[in-house]
């Protein structure tokens, strides 16, 4: 089973990074940075205000950027018969989704965490805030990836699935946002533990929920 898993992961990474499936790795990154760039134009160049609210904006930008790769994350392979062929070879949907989850996170998570540094410079954030932001995104983005994967699987067979997926991510990602961005307001890294715990739970559940959704879509 090890062999196919690595082969699947390699294919998923190649497809997700280059944008053959979904948006590719660069688009969410640019989207994330452009929100950080637009915010000072919208609220004015008041350094105190920016330093106080900038961290929250970075979190919102990360959440919205996580929506971009969802289009085609699952639906493309469902349409082109990949999931059928995997099933016939005894590779379960859960197994495929586990590989997809890892590749999905790798294609946007680490880049967003690194992009916090230029985003923080644009917003004039303090060093301590940047540290909490990066730690928070490290704890939170796996959860965002897991929620995204589940939603992408659930909406894969729907006609306007991509738009719906974006809308569904918002409420489901709320707990991660509350605890992740909450750490900034209270300057307390302990809150990040909650964000990390929610992420872990979502990561554990996602391959099973997504796998079941794909099987249900096939019957439809």
């Amino acid at each position: 089973m090890n062999g196919p898993f690595l082969t699947l992961l390699r294919r998923d990474l190649r497809n997700l990074l280059t944008g053959a499936h979904g948006s590719g790795a660069i688009l969410p990154l640019l989207f994330f940075l452009s929100i950080a760039m637009l915010y000072p134009f919208a609220v004015g160049p008041n350094p105190t205000l920016l330093a106080k609210t900038g961290g929250g904006i970075v979190w919102i930008a990360a959440l919205l950027a996580a929506i971009l790769p969802l289009d085609g994350l699952i639906s493309r392979d469902l349409e082109t018969g990949f999931f059928d062929q995997f099933r016939l070879r005894g590779i379960s949907e859960e197994w495929v989704c586990a590989a997809r989850l890892i590749a999905h996170w790798l294609s946007f998570g680490p880049l967003l965490i690194l992009a916090c540094i230029p985003a923080a410079a644009l917003l004039g954030l303090e060093r301590q805030t940047v540290g909490l932001l990066m730690l928070g995104l490290l704890a939170g983005t796996p959860g965002l990836a897991a929620v995204g994967l589940m939603i992408a699987a659930l909406t894969a067979s729907l006609r306007s699935g991509a738009a719906l997926a974006g809308l569904m991510l918002v409420p489901l990602a709320l707990p991660i946002l509350i605890f992740g961005a909450g750490a900034l307001a209270r300057s307390d890294p302990a809150t990040l533990g909650f964000a990390g715990a929610i992420s872990l739970l979502l990561v554990a559940v996602a391959p099973f929920a997504a796998g079941a959704s794909i099987r249900a879509a096939r019957e439809g």
Partner: peptide, 10 residues
């Protein structure tokens, strides 16, 4: 199975 989906990356 061979059906109308070739299951090849476009």
């Amino acid at each position: 199975l061979l059906d109308e989906n070739p299951a090849l990356d476009e």
